[in-house]
Design a binder for these strands. Structure first.
Length: 907
RNA sequence: GGGCUCGUAGCUCAGCGGAAGAGUGCCUCCUUCGCGAGGAGGAAGCCACGGGUUCGAAUCCCGUCGAGUCCA
């Protein structure tokens, strides 16, 4: 790819291309003496303690960057959320370009502006273990980026030359000495795209990455291969730059770590709460020396190098300091995640939030820091007020969520403590497999197990260093890219030339019949020029109905805007050019329509009642009922459910307009924000926006809707269900279906009341009374049976026979249960009788042999012989055995068989 | 989206095919000036729910509901 880096700006500005003497990479520099690329691990962090340009705050630097590009014709965009709501392949926003993937980068949707500049908060959790230790890793960081989207054959906005020029000029404006900058060549790969790239390095630190994205991944063999993956040139070629805001600020301050540069107030707060001082106070010079080497040497090597000078400095001072750094980092990350609406849970992005929360709690605990995590998050939000005032709107909710998470984790750990203690009672040591199991199924971290084991049982537990990767291995690595299904590809080819179908169902949502011309007919599919049939999509099922001469439409699909009517049966009578009449099952359609509008109303009401974090996590509309999954951090109470229901019905009664308009995508996002993507992200540059009332609820939605909320009819919330931690499912019915649902419930109550012969309103009290009485009678019955068994024992005792000096009882008891038999037999055998009892009612058999009887009588053998007569089986020990059979007519014969067995043994 | 675990007395749990158990809390009595403590006795269970297998299910299998947890 060496040809990719022939850039005029380098030639015209005295740059030379060199090869790094350490790593062999090629790089560009103005300094002819330089022979290393400048990047770690080839060079040290020279800027620490000696910054290369004037000190900047984050606000200052961000503003400089944005206005620099603004004055160079770039449009400034405000930040996107850190949760990637518009993508289904990633949960969190990992880069500024992620905002524009995949629809804009692929060229199918135009960019919101071109060129543009943005500073995007991003979250990456891959290097979780390095946070706090490396001095440079952050879970949450701002990627400042300027982007230009070019199309082959179109007018080029700009490409490599301008990109390098902008970068160089920006650095110059900041006051970075030109000779200290190197541009290192490095191919870039990510998110299904790739391209050549220049890493911009100053003072040993990579400050920015200039990516020239012009390749996309393909699944079959292609033109270019990188790391075993095939790529081809895209129709578009995109300038994707990433300037690390925090790194610039760090470089400008020259502090030992990036953390000290970005959130020193939080670090101070933490240090003072645990009574520690910052190592800069007493070990300033050493710390700077160490920090400079951080990119070059591994931790072990550093410790060895400073061992003689500093003793156990790393263990005593650096280790807690690193934890402080990590906590300060994690809490800043949480501020963004939670403010942007992530609900902690055990799945999807919610799990990532919980992961960060629990790590933070564990670390706070290890420092014995009493400070609640929510206070630290609130402090971050306060400190970032000037840059991100919107975070403050969520402070109350964040407090509630974090307090809840704290108590949940406390519960998990105290339960874990019990489990481990229980285990230690039985086992002397805990294997690695046990540790993995404890973590995997109960969430008990091995460090915690070790602690419990040594304090409670004085048992040492070895936690392997690669513990967490062992856990990861257990879950295996699946994740494969799915090539598009061949069936769909075939359909795409077939309909390529067909014009998009006119959608009559939007203009005439209540119509039933229509006329149309057949454009194509193949397999079982009919394509028309216009249709009333709604294709399946957005959780709304397709319409059914009739086409032409009684052809049954069983499914309807939308492929690239062409609507395919799937027919059950013979379509041979249909050919292109024919005129056909269609009619849909309008009763079904109207039911779907009501449920669809009701879905929007319910989520609006839920958001009003529960809070702004409510987000649709899935939905399915039906004729009789629909379901809506929403993100929420605790169970919805009955009271909340009633409030939501009432509010939704108030919206219906207000009879507000439901307006659907087509709108340019960027315009819609600008006007309404990302909340329009509740039901996922539809493709295309134009969106259909459905608005209820005056912006009460706005969603991008292709479904059919009522035109007034009043047409929806009554909305009945049937039940709530927790389908996952952090996701509640609401079941509801609308319109006619709601009335029917209410009637069904009514009938249930009526029927129950009539069975008990009481008025409906007495139902709860009476049911409770009946239940209590039933419990009492059950006990009474139990007591009486025991009494009867006692009386029977006396009778049985008198009927005992003597077999060679051994007292034997073998009797059929008419109406005894298994429990009765056991009760009697055990008492009799205690008194020295060899006892065999058979129930004439249930066919149960019990044999009990007293300890005093000769060992030759085997209860299990007796029972086996007896039950074989009864047509059943049984078993037990030589002293006591049970069994049974269902041939109740054979009980007398069975008794004789038992007696015979006993007699033969005593003979 | 995938995996694992758990629902038994008010609470914490044992039992894992043959009469529902322990600890703790609760009630009564004894000991004590009283408290703590100790002793004796007692009450308290739809063994989550619904099916199936079995002579027999808290126990095994399937489903439902509820809870916990790990991974992508």
């Amino acid at each position: 790819m060496s040809g990719e880096y022939g850039i005029a700006y380098f030639d015209e500005n005295g740059f030379v291309r060199k090869v790094c003497s350490r790593c062999g990479s090629r790089f560009w520099t103005r300094d002819p003496e330089r022979d290393t690329c400048g990047d770690a691990p080839c060079d040290t962090y020279t800027f620490i303690g000696a910054p290369l340009f004037r000190e900047h705050s984050a606000e200052e630097l961000r503003e400089k960057f944005l206005s620099f590009f603004e004055s160079r014709n770039h449009k400034r965009l405000s930040r996107y959320p850190v949760v990637a709501r518009w993508r289904d392949d990633i949960y969190l926003n990992i880069a500024s370009i992620a905002n524009f993937q995949p629809l804009i980068t692929s060229g199918s949707v135009p960019p919101p502006a071109n060129p543009l500049v943005i500073s995007q908060p991003c979250i990456r959790l891959e290097d979780l273990e390095s946070i706090g230790k490396s001095g440079r890793h952050l879970t949450m960081f701002e990627m400042m980026g300027h982007h230009a989207f070019n199309k082959r054959g179109g007018d080029e906005i700009y490409w490599k030359n301008e990109t390098v020029q902008y970068c160089d000029e920006f650095l110059k404006q900041l006051g970075v000495p030109p000779t200290s900058v190197t541009y290192k060549e490095a191919p870039w790969v990510g998110g299904g795209n790739a391209g050549p790239c220049l890493e911009v390095i100053v003072g040993g630190l990579e400050l920015a990455t200039l990516v020239f994205m012009d390749l996309e991944a393909v699944y079959e063999k292609g033109e270019i291969s990188i790391d075993g993956q095939w790529y081809r040139k895209m129709e578009t070629y995109i300038v994707d730059t990433g300037y690390g805001l925090e790194r610039f600020v760090w470089a400008s301050k020259g502090t030992p770590t990036v953390y000290d540069a970005i959130f020193p107030e939080v670090i101070d707060e933490l240090l003072s709460s645990i009574g520690l001082e910052h190592p800069m106070q007493s070990y300033g010079n050493e710390l700077i020396e160490i920090a400079r080497l951080c990119g070059v040497m591994k931790r072990k090597e550093l410790e060895k190098k400073f061992q003689s000078r500093l003793g156990d400095f790393f263990r005593r001072i650096m280790a807690p300091m690193e934890t402080v750094y990590a906590i300060a980092d994690h809490t800043r990350c949480l501020a963004f995640m939670l403010a942007d609406g992530v609900v902690p849970s055990n799945a999807k992005e919610g799990y990532l939030a919980r992961l960060v929360i629990r790590r933070t709690l564990r670390m706070l605990n290890s420092l014995q820091c009493e400070m609640p995590v929510e206070e630290l998050v609130a402090l971050h939000i306060k400190l970032m007020h000037d840059s991100f005032p919107e975070l403050e709107d969520s402070v109350d909710r964040i407090n509630e969520i974090l307090a809840l998470e704290r108590s949940r984790y406390r519960d998990t750990l105290s339960k874990g403590e019990r489990i481990v203690k229980q285990m230690l009672k039985k086992e002397k040591e805990l294997s690695v497999d046990t540790l993995i199991d404890l973590y995997d199924t109960h969430g008990i971290p091995p460090e915690f197990v070790k602690e419990v084991a040594s304090s409670a049982g004085n048992i040492e537990v070895d936690v392997p260093e690669d513990f967490y990767s062992l856990v990861a291995k257990l879950h295996g690595a699946e994740e494969q890219h799915h090539a598009p299904e061949p069936e769909l590809a075939r359909l795409h080819d077939r309909i390529r030339a067909i014009p998009k179908t006119a959608r009559l169902y939007y203009e005439e949502p209540f119509s039933k019949d229509f006329d149309a011309t057949v454009l194509d007919c193949f397999d079982n599919f009919i394509v028309l020029d216009r249709t009333l049939f709604y294709p399946e999509g957005g959780g709304q099922p397709a319409d059914t109905g009739i086409l032409g001469n009684n052809l049954k439409v069983v499914a309807v699909r939308d492929v690239d805007g062409v609507i395919l009517h799937e027919i059950e049966g013979d379509t041979s009578g249909i050919s292109p050019g024919m005129h056909v009449r269609g009619s849909i099952d309008s009763r079904r359609r109207i039911a779907h329509m009501r449920h669809h509008s009701a879905t929007h109303i319910v989520i609006w009401a839920a958001r009003k009642v529960l809070g702004g974090h409510i987000w649709q996590a899935g939905a399915q509309k039906g004729e009789l009922r629909s379901r809506l999954d929403i993100t929420h951090f605790k169970r919805i109470t009955d009271d909340e459910r009633r409030k939501i229901e009432l509010l939704a019905n108030e919206m219906v009664m207000r009879n507000e307009d439901i307006k659907a308009t087509f709108m340019e995508r960027n315009e819609a996002e600008r006007r309404y924000g990302f909340q329009i993507y509740q039901g996922g992200v539809p493709p295309g540059k134009e969106l259909r926006i459905v608005e209820i009332g005056n912006c009460e609820d706005v969603q991008a939605c292709a479904g059919t809707h009522c035109t007034k909320t009043g047409e929806v009819g009554p909305i009945k919330l049937l039940r709530t269900e927790r389908i996952q931690d952090g996701i509640e499912r609401l079941w509801f019915s609308a319109g006619e279906a709601a009335v029917r649902a209410i009637q069904t419930r009514d009938a249930l109550i009526k029927k129950s009341a009539s069975v008990l012969r009481i008025p409906e309103e007495r139902l709860p009290a009476s049911v409770e009374r009946f239940f209590d009485e039933w419990k009492q009678l059950r006990k009474e019955n139990e007591r009486l049976r025991a009494e009867i068994a006692g009386l029977r024992v006396e009778q049985l005792r008198m009927r005992a026979m003597d077999m060679r000096g051994v007292k034997v009882i073998s009797e059929v008891v008419a109406d005894a249960t298994m429990k009765d038999l056991m009760r009697m037999a055990s008492q009799l055998s205690d008194e020295g009788f060899v006892t065999l009892l058979i129930s004439g009612m249930t066919g149960n058999v019990v044999c009990s042999v007293p300890a005093s009887a000769p060992a030759v009588v085997n209860a299990a053998e007796v029972v086996t012989n007896v039950t074989s007569v009864l047509g059943g089986r049984g078993g037990g020990t030589a002293r006591s055995a049970r069994g049974g059979g269902n041939r109740l007519d054979k009980v007398e014969a069975a008794k004789e068989a038992g007696l015979k067995t006993i007699a033969s043994r005593l003979a």
